Computed example of a mutant assay.
Amino acid sequence: MERPHPKPEDPSGGGGIRVIEPPARHVLSRCDTGAVSSWLPRDTKVRAMTMPTERTRALLWAGGFLIELARDKRLPVEVRRRAVVIARHFPTKEDVTDLAFLQPIEAGGPLAPPDEVAWKDDCKYGPLLHGSRFGWPE
């Protein structure tokens, strides 16, 4: 059963929505990773927690892990199907390469080219590629 959301209170009693402005010493910022937005003091320096090579390696490993999950017959069918669905929309090695060259590390880019990152030893079936094809697990 869905519970109704409480309505915002209007101090004037008019039933409208009250807009709250941020304090003058704060600004709306985006972190370097582009994934998190928050209110930060103006003098706060936001630093990425990972290096571009680490982000690239994590994307390639995750794509390879989705392949492993999809092929592992010991896992329940639901898990393997979910891995196939996610893999269809997950960035491939070619996507990561394109993104790395669109904004190089020297220009503050978030990813390193895959050929400059050590990732191959940890991908049992290799990375997720444009040509990767998965059968629907039964």
Rank of each mutant, 00 (worst) to 15 (best):
E2C: 02
E2P: 04
H5D: 08
H5T: 10
H5M: 08
P6R: 06
K7M: 07
K7W: 05
P8R: 08
E9S: 06
D10T: 02
P11A: 09
S12L: 12
S12N: 08
I17L: 01
R18T: 14
V19G: 01
R25N: 13
S29Q: 14
S29P: 04
D32N: 06
T33H: 14
T33P: 04
S37M: 14
S37G: 13
S38Q: 09
W39E: 08
W39K: 06
L40W: 15
P41E: 07
R42L: 14
D43C: 02
T44C: 12
M51Y: 11
P52I: 09
T53R: 14
E54R: 11
T56F: 14
R57I: 06
A58M: 06
L59T: 06
L59C: 05
L60D: 02
W61D: 11
W61V: 09
A62Y: 03
G63R: 01
G63K: 01
G63D: 02
F65G: 06
F65V: 03
F65C: 03
L66I: 01
I67F: 02
A70Q: 03
D72P: 01
K73Y: 07
P76A: 14
P76W: 01
V77I: 15
V77H: 13
V77P: 07
E78K: 07
V79T: 15
R80E: 08
R82W: 10
R82G: 08
R82C: 10
V84R: 13
V85F: 09
A87C: 04
F90V: 00
T92G: 02
K93P: 01
K93G: 10
D95C: 00
F101A: 08
Q103N: 05
P104F: 10
A107Q: 07
P110I: 06
L111D: 03
A112K: 02
P114D: 12
V117R: 03
A118F: 07
W119H: 13
W119P: 02
D122F: 14
K124H: 11
K124E: 14
P127E: 04
G131Q: 05
G131F: 00
S132Q: 03
R133H: 09
G135W: 10
G135T: 15
E138I: 07
